[in-house]
Design a binder for these strands. Structure first.
Lengths: 109, 109
DNA sequence: AAGTATATATCGGCGGCCAGAGTATGTCCA
DNA sequence: TGGACATACTCTGGCCGCCGATATATACTT
């Protein structure tokens, strides 16, 4: 049953763990956090947002109109927090295993 | 240009960072490492092995016949080690960001 | 004789991401 | 004043990589 998240979905949940945000705000944050390295595509984002909401991992927090433009804010749900927690722990372990092995093999600084 | 790896591919590279292995051996190791939680599908494995080899991230190490059964061993290439290293570092950071945020939000033990 | 473990090959299907275009409003600057 | 750029969401076609299943073959166990 254990759900698996791909990177973009993981990053969305992670972004929302820092507080409710609207779509465009998530894109900006992901870009900043990765120092411009990762640019999430709009198609990916809004598609993922719909899917995550359908799975009750995120919820619509509120909607605002700013300068005649809609902002739909999402927040992390309780289920989403649990999933993000278990997933983050899991991939953290996996990353550490990889780094340790590379070090032992002399392939990592 | 920065290549992205999905989990199964990442796990294969990680497994090979621990030494050359053959396909079935990789499946067994991944299963053991995750305490039976993750079972890599054979279709996924051999497909990924072919792709990774085509991208020169892994190489055929040697082939053996054991009990009339072929064993094709793969090893991590230099390129593969570099990629695994950068990827592991990157996702490690991402996982830590997520865990820190959950902790701050009081959503993580 | 049947089931389990070892070992690889192959193939249809599909979910999720990519890439791009579309719609709209407001700001900055030349 | 008009062109570029930022903000903000929508939609669609395509494709890549994983899933699930089946196939083949040998050896060991029950």
């Amino acid at each position: 049953m254990s759900q698996r998240l791909q990177e973009p979905s993981f990053l969305i949940l992670s972004s929302l763990a820092g507080g409710a945000k609207h779509g465009y705000g998530i894109i900006k944050e992901v870009q900043e956090l990765s120092a411009g390295a990762v640019s999430m595509k709009v198609g990916t984002l809004y598609g993922a947002l719909d899917r995550l909401a359908a799975e009750h991992l995120i919820e619509v927090d509120r909607e605002e109109i700013v300068d005649s433009r809609l902002r739909r804010y999402y927040r992390l749900s309780a289920d989403g927090a649990v999933l993000l927690s278990t997933e983050a722990t899991r991939i953290n372990t996996q990353a550490n295993v990889a780094l340790r092995r590379l070090r032992v093999a002399g392939m990592h600084p």
